[in-house]
């Protein structure tokens, strides 16, 4: 499934799953495909503050370095150490073990500024929902 229905998306190809106060953030299947084999992930430490649509970290392939933007503002409560040790998880399970950070959400209203699955599909040129 390349654009899961239970997530929200940014135009810069990040996804976010809000669960209570905590949001989990990663990059989309489409983004990892464009990047190719991810070789390095740089993420902010626990406790750092991130701002919606501002740079959050970097994901690198062999010949490209791409900024990752925070889809939502808040404080980093956890960064995925597994993905730092094994960057290929971003390619293999972008919506699963390849998540990047967890954020304590500052303003749930910001979710409204993100794309719905349907809008994100349109954004990346996918006409029909995945699997359809």
């Amino acid at each position: 499934m390349s654009v899961p229905d239970d997530l929200r998306y940014s135009k810069e190809h990040e996804w976010v799953r809000v669960d209570g106060d905590i949001a989990t953030v990663g990059i989309t299947h489409f983004a990892q495909e464009q990047l190719g084999d991810v070789v390095f992930v740089e993420l902010p430490g626990q406790g750092s503050a991130v701002k919606q649509f501002a740079s959050l970290g970097v994901v690198e392939s062999v010949k490209a370095a791409s900024d990752v933007y925070a889809p939502i503002s808040g404080e980093i409560t956890e960064r995925n150490m597994k993905v730092i040790e094994k960057p290929e998880l971003v390619n293999q399970e972008p919506y699963g073990n390849g998540w990047l950070v967890k954020v304590r959400v500052a303003d749930k209203g910001e979710v409204g500024k993100l794309l719905s699955p349907a809008d994100y599909r349109a954004h990346i040129g996918e006409t029909a929902p995945s699997g359809a």
Binding site: F40, E60, S61, V62, K63, A64, A65
Partner: peptide
Amino acid sequence: LQTREQHIR
């Protein structure tokens, strides 16, 4: 580790 370098970044 070429992403550090000028031809990429």
